[in-house]
């Protein structure tokens, strides 16, 4: 594995994906990619549309199964065949379309799929609302609309609900797919603050985005992909926007960081990129 943040070397990675291959009808969507994520770390996965970043992440969240490769959670190999397996390994995904039921309120969404029930098996809405208030207050003290359907909430508030939902599942690895897409400036900042807070709580966060700016501001390390391959993994503080753009577009590690290119990384400008 690449040597990365010095602060992380004393910890074990929360999750590692090793040599993942997946192809769809002969097209190699992900071709031998290895990435890792440490506790209290935000890692961006960058690449153009079609670079394979979403496919790679869907392997981790259980939506796809890899043709070959290993997923290691807390040092043990994990089998992730569906969303439920991912959840059992404390891996939660927050999808781009937010995956909330618009007609239900915040508490109902938070507990969807694992509601509290009383001794007769009836829903205990008061207890759920109580817990929801507690969790959401921690994330977002301004959150007030507990009884409105989430369709009445702003984008940032909806994102808070989605994240709170993941936290309630005791997520340790949070996968966020374009978390700031379709959000305004203020809302984006709010999500940024949320992410910082989760980081302090020791969660590992994978950010999938094709917007360089969002990821640059929030992440500690960047995995950059192109054409299904990992171009390289770099600490965010050691690179500039231009370096990363070069990685995304040309599929080429910046000269001064060549030593960081790990196994599975394309070290030199690859042929496809030059075509």
């Amino acid at each position: 594995m690449p040597e990365t943040n010095n602060s992380n070397t004393d910890k074990n990675p929360l999750v590692e994906m090793r040599d993942i291959h997946i192809s769809f009808g002969g097209v190699k969507a992900v071709d031998g990619v290895s990435i890792d994520l440490y506790p209290g770390e935000v890692v961006g996965v960058l690449g153009h549309n079609g670079a394979g970043k979403s496919t790679l992440i869907k392997v981790l969240s259980g939506a796809y199964q890899a043709d070959s490769g290993q997923i290691i959670v807390d040092g043990r190999e994990a089998k992730i065949e569906n969303a439920r397996d991912a959840r059992d390994n404390n891996i939660e995904t927050i999808y781009q379309n937010l995956a909330l039921a618009d007609n239900l309120d915040a508490a109902q969404n938070l507990f969807l799929g694992r509601e509290f029930t009383d001794k007769f098996g009836f829903l205990d809405d008061a207890a759920m609302e109580h817990k929801a208030r507690e969790v959401l207050h921690r994330l977002n003290p301004n959150f007030k609309k507990f009884t409105s359907p989430v369709s009445a909430l702003s984008g940032g508030q909806r994102q808070s609900v989605a994240i709170a939902r993941a936290l309630l599942f005791e997520a340790r690895v949070l996968i966020m797919d374009e978390p700031c897409a379709a959000l305004g400036v203020h809302e984006t900042r709010m999500v940024g603050e949320l992410i910082d807070q989760l980081k302090r709580d020791g969660l590992g966060i994978l950010l999938i985005s094709h917007d360089l700016h969002d990821v640059f501001d929030l992440s500690d390390r960047l995995h950059v992909m192109k054409n299904g391959k990992l171009v390289g993994t770099v600490p965010t503080k050691d690179v500039t926007h231009d370096d990363v753009l070069g990685m995304i577009i040309l599929g080429k590690m910046p000269e001064h960081l060549m030593h960081l290119a790990g196994p599975g990384a394309t070290n030199a400008p690859n042929k496809e990129a030059l075509q």
């Binding site: 959840r87 995956a99 909330l100 039921a101 007609n103 969807l112």
Partner: peptide
């Protein structure tokens, strides 16, 4: 009814 995809993802 609100979001079939979300329901499916929630394990329903």
């Amino acid at each position: 009814g609100g979001n079939p995809q979300a329901a499916e993802l929630a394990g329903i």
